[in-house]
Amino acid sequence: MKNHRTHPIRHLKNGGSSEATQALLAEEPLSIRVQGNPYTVVMRTPGDEIAHVAGFCLGEGIVDAVEDFGTLAFCDEDVNVVTVTLTPKRSEKVPEILDRRGFISQTSCGICGKELISDLRQATQSVDAAPIDLATVSKALDELSTHQPLREITRASHAAALFDEAGRLLSVAEDAGRHNALDKAVGMLFLKKELPEARFLVLSSRISYEMVQKAARAGIAIIAAVSRPTALAVELAEGLNITLCSLARNDGLFVYTHPERIKV
Protein backbone atom coordinates (compact mmCIF):
# COMPACT_ATOMS: atom_id res chain seq x y z
CA MET A 1 0.00 0.00 0.00
CA LYS A 2 1.46 3.33 -1.07
CA ASN A 3 2.01 6.19 1.36
CA HIS A 4 1.04 8.75 -1.29
CA ARG A 5 -0.73 8.99 -4.64
CA THR A 6 -0.93 11.50 -7.46
CA HIS A 7 -4.08 13.44 -8.21
CA PRO A 8 -4.99 15.76 -11.08
CA ILE A 9 -5.51 19.40 -10.10
CA ARG A 10 -6.29 22.70 -11.80
CA HIS A 11 -3.89 25.52 -10.98
CA LEU A 12 -5.77 28.84 -10.96
CA LYS A 13 -3.85 32.11 -11.12
CA ASN A 14 -4.19 35.62 -12.47
CA GLY A 15 -4.38 35.45 -16.21
CA GLY A 16 -5.68 31.89 -16.55
CA SER A 17 -5.38 28.31 -15.38
CA SER A 18 -3.49 25.13 -16.16
CA GLU A 19 -3.74 21.39 -15.54
CA ALA A 20 -1.23 19.65 -13.30
CA THR A 21 -0.79 16.68 -10.96
CA GLN A 22 0.08 16.75 -7.29
CA ALA A 23 1.24 14.13 -4.77
CA LEU A 24 -1.23 13.65 -1.92
CA LEU A 25 -0.44 11.99 1.40
CA ALA A 26 -2.28 8.69 1.84
CA GLU A 27 -4.50 8.14 4.86
CA GLU A 28 -6.05 4.76 5.67
CA PRO A 29 -7.72 3.18 8.71
CA LEU A 30 -5.67 0.83 10.88
CA SER A 31 -7.64 -1.48 13.15
CA ILE A 32 -5.86 -2.57 16.32
CA ARG A 33 -7.19 -5.69 18.01
CA VAL A 34 -6.05 -6.65 21.50
CA GLN A 35 -6.71 -10.05 23.08
CA GLY A 36 -9.06 -10.91 20.21
CA ASN A 37 -11.23 -7.83 20.66
CA PRO A 38 -11.39 -4.56 18.68
CA TYR A 39 -9.49 -1.92 20.66
CA THR A 40 -9.38 1.07 18.35
CA VAL A 41 -9.23 2.26 14.76
CA VAL A 42 -6.74 5.00 13.94
CA MET A 43 -6.34 6.92 10.71
CA ARG A 44 -2.73 6.70 9.60
CA THR A 45 -0.41 6.89 6.60
CA PRO A 46 0.37 3.30 5.47
CA GLY A 47 3.76 1.94 6.49
CA ASP A 48 5.53 0.64 9.62
CA GLU A 49 2.28 -0.81 11.00
CA ILE A 50 3.91 -3.26 13.42
CA ALA A 51 6.18 -0.58 14.86
CA HIS A 52 3.19 1.79 14.99
CA VAL A 53 1.14 -0.64 17.07
CA ALA A 54 4.10 -1.49 19.32
CA GLY A 55 4.64 2.19 20.07
CA PHE A 56 0.92 2.73 20.58
CA CYS A 57 0.73 -0.15 23.07
CA LEU A 58 3.71 1.21 25.02
CA GLY A 59 2.25 4.71 25.07
CA GLU A 60 -1.11 3.50 26.31
CA GLY A 61 0.34 1.30 29.05
CA ILE A 62 -0.86 -1.93 27.44
CA VAL A 63 2.75 -3.16 27.59
CA ASP A 64 5.86 -2.05 29.47
CA ALA A 65 8.35 -4.30 27.67
CA VAL A 66 8.58 -6.24 24.40
CA GLU A 67 8.33 -9.44 26.43
CA ASP A 68 4.76 -8.47 27.39
CA PHE A 69 3.65 -9.29 23.85
CA GLY A 70 2.47 -12.82 23.17
CA THR A 71 2.03 -12.05 19.49
CA LEU A 72 2.12 -8.88 17.40
CA ALA A 73 1.22 -9.45 13.77
CA PHE A 74 -0.98 -8.62 10.81
CA CYS A 75 -4.36 -10.32 10.68
CA ASP A 76 -4.20 -12.75 7.75
CA GLU A 77 -1.71 -10.50 5.92
CA ASP A 78 -4.16 -7.58 6.00
CA VAL A 79 -1.94 -4.54 6.56
CA ASN A 80 -4.97 -2.58 7.79
CA VAL A 81 -5.48 -4.89 10.79
CA VAL A 82 -2.87 -5.67 13.47
CA THR A 83 -3.61 -8.14 16.25
CA VAL A 84 -1.99 -8.06 19.67
CA THR A 85 -2.03 -10.75 22.31
CA LEU A 86 -0.44 -10.36 25.71
CA THR A 87 1.26 -12.91 27.87
CA PRO A 88 -1.01 -14.27 30.61
CA LYS A 89 1.10 -12.51 33.23
CA ARG A 90 0.73 -9.14 31.51
CA SER A 91 -2.99 -9.48 30.80
CA GLU A 92 -3.58 -10.08 34.50
CA LYS A 93 -1.84 -6.77 35.31
CA VAL A 94 -3.78 -4.50 32.94
CA PRO A 95 -7.46 -5.54 32.95
CA GLU A 96 -8.61 -1.95 33.45
CA ILE A 97 -6.60 -0.82 30.41
CA LEU A 98 -7.99 -3.59 28.23
CA ASP A 99 -11.53 -2.59 29.27
CA ARG A 100 -10.94 1.13 28.81
CA ARG A 101 -13.11 2.84 26.19
CA GLY A 102 -10.75 5.75 25.62
CA PHE A 103 -7.00 6.19 25.49
CA ILE A 104 -4.84 7.69 28.21
CA SER A 105 -3.98 10.27 25.57
CA GLN A 106 -7.56 11.18 24.76
CA THR A 107 -9.87 13.22 26.94
CA SER A 108 -13.56 12.46 27.11
CA CYS A 109 -16.11 15.23 26.86
CA GLY A 110 -16.49 17.22 30.04
CA ILE A 111 -13.20 16.34 31.70
CA CYS A 112 -11.29 19.35 32.91
CA GLY A 113 -7.58 20.04 32.60
CA LYS A 114 -6.82 19.41 36.28
CA GLU A 115 -8.57 16.02 36.20
CA LEU A 116 -6.74 15.04 33.04
CA ILE A 117 -3.33 16.01 34.42
CA SER A 118 -4.05 14.06 37.60
CA ASP A 119 -5.02 10.95 35.62
CA LEU A 120 -1.97 11.17 33.37
CA ARG A 121 0.44 11.62 36.26
CA GLN A 122 -1.00 8.57 37.99
CA ALA A 123 -0.58 6.50 34.82
CA THR A 124 2.91 7.76 33.91
CA GLN A 125 6.15 7.83 35.87
CA SER A 126 8.42 10.84 36.08
CA VAL A 127 11.49 10.59 33.87
CA ASP A 128 15.04 11.85 34.15
CA ALA A 129 18.12 12.11 31.94
CA ALA A 130 21.49 13.82 31.71
CA PRO A 131 21.70 17.28 30.12
CA ILE A 132 22.17 17.69 26.35
CA ASP A 133 24.12 20.45 24.60
CA LEU A 134 22.05 23.27 23.12
CA ALA A 135 23.97 22.94 19.83
CA THR A 136 23.09 19.23 19.58
CA VAL A 137 19.37 19.79 20.02
CA SER A 138 19.32 22.86 17.77
CA LYS A 139 21.13 21.00 14.99
CA ALA A 140 18.65 18.12 15.15
CA LEU A 141 15.75 20.55 14.90
CA ASP A 142 17.32 22.47 12.03
CA GLU A 143 17.99 19.29 10.06
CA LEU A 144 14.68 17.52 10.71
CA SER A 145 13.37 18.38 7.25
CA THR A 146 16.23 16.42 5.67
CA HIS A 147 14.74 13.27 7.21
CA GLN A 148 11.26 13.92 5.78
CA PRO A 149 11.17 12.56 2.22
CA LEU A 150 7.39 12.13 2.36
CA ARG A 151 6.94 15.77 3.33
CA GLU A 152 9.15 16.76 0.42
CA ILE A 153 6.78 14.91 -1.93
CA THR A 154 3.41 15.76 -0.36
CA ARG A 155 3.96 18.82 1.86
CA ALA A 156 1.50 17.25 4.29
CA SER A 157 3.20 14.82 6.69
CA HIS A 158 4.29 15.18 10.30
CA ALA A 159 7.56 13.72 11.56
CA ALA A 160 8.98 12.45 14.84
CA ALA A 161 12.64 11.61 15.30
CA LEU A 162 14.61 10.15 18.21
CA PHE A 163 18.29 10.93 18.81
CA ASP A 164 21.00 9.76 21.18
CA GLU A 165 22.97 12.11 23.43
CA ALA A 166 25.49 12.84 20.67
CA GLY A 167 22.74 13.84 18.25
CA ARG A 168 22.88 10.62 16.19
CA LEU A 169 19.55 9.82 14.55
CA LEU A 170 18.14 6.55 15.94
CA SER A 171 14.71 6.45 14.31
CA VAL A 172 12.37 8.68 12.35
CA ALA A 173 8.85 8.29 11.05
CA GLU A 174 6.38 10.34 9.03
CA ASP A 175 2.61 10.17 9.07
CA ALA A 176 -0.52 12.20 8.47
CA GLY A 177 -1.01 12.14 12.25
CA ARG A 178 1.66 13.50 14.59
CA HIS A 179 0.70 10.95 17.26
CA ASN A 180 1.12 8.15 14.72
CA ALA A 181 4.55 9.42 13.67
CA LEU A 182 5.67 9.39 17.30
CA ASP A 183 4.24 5.90 17.93
CA LYS A 184 6.08 4.60 14.85
CA ALA A 185 9.42 6.18 15.78
CA VAL A 186 9.18 4.87 19.35
CA GLY A 187 7.96 1.45 18.21
CA MET A 188 10.92 0.96 15.88
CA LEU A 189 13.37 1.24 18.79
CA PHE A 190 11.10 -0.49 21.29
CA LEU A 191 10.90 -3.66 19.20
CA LYS A 192 14.69 -3.73 18.85
CA LYS A 193 15.13 -3.06 22.58
CA GLU A 194 17.11 0.07 21.74
CA LEU A 195 14.74 2.63 23.24
CA PRO A 196 17.02 3.29 26.27
CA GLU A 197 19.59 4.77 23.84
CA ALA A 198 17.18 7.59 22.90
CA ARG A 199 17.85 10.84 24.78
CA PHE A 200 15.68 13.42 23.07
CA LEU A 201 12.74 13.70 20.71
CA VAL A 202 12.27 16.14 17.84
CA LEU A 203 8.81 16.91 16.42
CA SER A 204 7.71 18.77 13.31
CA SER A 205 4.45 19.69 15.03
CA ARG A 206 3.35 21.50 18.16
CA ILE A 207 3.79 19.77 21.52
CA SER A 208 0.42 18.73 22.92
CA TYR A 209 -0.18 16.92 26.20
CA GLU A 210 -0.60 13.58 24.36
CA MET A 211 2.91 13.87 22.93
CA VAL A 212 4.29 14.55 26.41
CA GLN A 213 2.52 11.50 27.79
CA LYS A 214 3.80 9.26 24.99
CA ALA A 215 7.35 10.55 25.46
CA ALA A 216 7.17 9.92 29.20
CA ARG A 217 6.02 6.34 28.62
CA ALA A 218 9.04 5.91 26.35
CA GLY A 219 11.39 7.37 28.96
CA ILE A 220 12.25 10.43 26.86
CA ALA A 221 13.03 13.46 29.02
CA ILE A 222 13.59 16.14 26.34
CA ILE A 223 11.16 17.16 23.61
CA ALA A 224 12.12 19.76 21.02
CA ALA A 225 9.64 20.93 18.40
CA VAL A 226 9.30 23.33 15.52
CA SER A 227 6.13 24.78 17.09
CA ARG A 228 5.35 25.83 20.64
CA PRO A 229 3.70 23.62 23.28
CA THR A 230 0.17 24.00 24.59
CA ALA A 231 -0.37 25.22 28.13
CA LEU A 232 -1.62 21.78 29.19
CA ALA A 233 1.49 20.14 27.74
CA VAL A 234 3.68 22.48 29.79
CA GLU A 235 1.77 21.69 32.96
CA LEU A 236 2.08 17.95 32.41
CA ALA A 237 5.77 18.18 31.45
CA GLU A 238 6.52 20.21 34.58
CA GLY A 239 5.11 17.46 36.77
CA LEU A 240 6.75 14.61 34.84
CA ASN A 241 10.20 16.24 34.85
CA ILE A 242 10.28 16.60 31.06
CA THR A 243 12.05 19.45 29.29
CA LEU A 244 10.03 21.13 26.53
CA CYS A 245 11.59 23.48 24.01
CA SER A 246 10.72 24.97 20.63
CA LEU A 247 12.59 26.66 17.84
CA ALA A 248 13.13 30.36 18.45
CA ARG A 249 12.38 32.57 15.48
CA ASN A 250 15.79 34.19 15.15
CA ASP A 251 18.23 32.00 17.08
CA GLY A 252 18.36 29.28 19.72
CA LEU A 253 15.50 27.63 21.58
CA PHE A 254 12.64 28.68 23.80
CA VAL A 255 12.65 26.39 26.88
CA TYR A 256 9.42 26.07 28.85
CA THR A 257 10.18 23.49 31.53
CA HIS A 258 13.31 22.22 33.30
CA PRO A 259 15.82 24.38 31.36
CA GLU A 260 18.73 22.96 33.36
CA ARG A 261 18.67 19.94 31.04
CA ILE A 262 19.83 22.02 28.06
CA LYS A 263 23.50 22.99 28.35
CA VAL A 264 24.57 26.30 26.80
Rank of each mutant, 00 (worst) to 15 (best):
A26V: 01
E49G: 15
Q35N: 14
A51T: 07
R44N: 01
A26D: 14
G55D: 08
V42Q: 11
Y39H: 09
C57K: 12
G55R: 08
P38M: 03
E27V: 11
P38E: 03
V41L: 05
P38V: 06
E28Q: 13
G59Q: 03
N37K: 14
G36W: 07
R33G: 05
L30E: 04
A54Y: 06
E28G: 01
A26I: 02
I32Y: 02
G59H: 06
P29D: 09
Y39D: 10
R33F: 05
T40H: 05
T45E: 01
E28P: 02
P29R: 13
E49Q: 15
R44C: 04
E49F: 07
P46R: 05
F56N: 03
F56G: 05
R33C: 12
L30H: 08
A54T: 07
V42S: 02
Q35G: 12
L58T: 02
M43G: 13
A26N: 14
C57N: 09
V53K: 04
T40P: 00
D48H: 13
S31W: 00
C57Q: 06
L25S: 07
S31Q: 15
P38S: 08
T40S: 15
I32E: 05
P29M: 08
G47I: 06
G36S: 09
H52D: 13
E27R: 14
H52L: 09
T40D: 09
V34F: 00
H52P: 02
V42W: 09
P38R: 10
R33I: 08
Y39E: 10
L30K: 12
R44M: 00
Y39P: 04
A51S: 15
L58Q: 06
E28R: 13
E60F: 02
R44L: 00
R44G: 00
A54I: 01
E28S: 14
V41N: 12
V41D: 06
V53G: 08
H52Y: 12
R44T: 14
N37T: 12
M43Y: 04
P46E: 02
M43P: 01
Q35L: 00
S31M: 11
N37Y: 01
I50A: 06
V53M: 06
S31K: 13
L25K: 09
P46Q: 02
G47Y: 08
G55N: 08
V42A: 13
A51M: 07
S31V: 08
N37W: 03
E27N: 14
E60T: 04
V41P: 10
N37A: 11
G59F: 01
H52W: 02
L58W: 02
C57W: 01
S31Y: 00
I32V: 12
L58Y: 07
L25Y: 05
A26S: 15
L25C: 12
E60R: 10
Y39F: 11
